[in-house]
Amino acid sequence: MPANDRLTIWGRPNSVNVQKVLWCLAELDVAFARIDAGMQFGRNGEADYLAMNPNGRIPTLVDGDFVLWESNAIMRYLCLAHGGETPLYPAMPRHRAAVERWLDWTLSTVQPIERPLFWGLVRTPPEQRDMIALQKAADDAAAMWRILDAHLAARLYVEAERFTLADIALGAYARRWFGVEGVVKPELPNLLGWYRRIAQRPAFIRHVAPPLS
């Protein structure tokens, strides 16, 4: 792998986990380089990449001689190492813990439930789609999103009135929920209002809003 003193992100731009990190970097106004890796770009199965990230997954961050994988861990690191007193990652223990739970929820709950729906509707040819199974996947995802919809009833953002890492982590997946077509989805007005707010952010428009692929 080429040496580079600049902060570097390995990963393709249409990966939801890479998008979270790119969005975070843009919110923090941190300069970085990105190297395509994963799916059609390959590289993540090569020995040099596996030496950095033995999972062979993306993204991977390289910051000087420091290497880090797992997207939510990367976002936390960026805030701590490059964010100063950023409101993205609150310092007060209760406020930080409240943000952390949503970061964990994206991995324990959102990602496993969202993945079959996204892959089935976006990365599977139409003639190979099982629409009955995909509607069931949409119903499962809707039940999950109702939790956040209820939570947002009296909030502008996921935690309190300020934009945080919780909004980034969940917003990247909400982009997929609102972007997929071909299944019946319920009206979730609080979720939609929040999504429209965060979707106006320049970093979202640049790194998350492009067409799903």
Results as ranks from 00 to 15, higher is better:
C24S: 08
P2C: 09
W145I: 02
A81M: 06
A138C: 12
T124A: 11
S71N: 00
E46T: 14
A33S: 15
I58F: 08
A154L: 07
S71A: 05
N53P: 02
L188N: 01
A33M: 13
V184G: 12
A174N: 01
R115Y: 10
A160E: 07
I58R: 02
G120F: 01
V180C: 05
A138T: 08
F32C: 03
M131V: 04
L88M: 05
L28I: 06
A203C: 08
M75F: 05
A31C: 05
P13W: 08
P13A: 10
F66I: 05
F32A: 02
E27C: 05
D149H: 14
A199P: 06
R196E: 11
Q111C: 12
M1W: 14
A97G: 12
A137F: 06
R76H: 11
L134R: 05
E85D: 13
A141L: 09
V18H: 01
H95Y: 14
P59N: 06
A33E: 15
A91P: 03
R34P: 04
P54I: 06
W177F: 11
V18K: 01
L88G: 00
A97I: 10
A172E: 00
P125D: 02
N44V: 07
N53Y: 08
F178H: 06
I132W: 14
D65L: 12
F41D: 09
A203Y: 11
M92V: 15
F41H: 15
I168P: 00
E85G: 08
L61A: 09
L188I: 06
A37H: 00
A160S: 13
A133C: 11
P112V: 03
A91W: 10
D130G: 04
A150N: 15
A26Q: 11
E46M: 13
L212F: 10
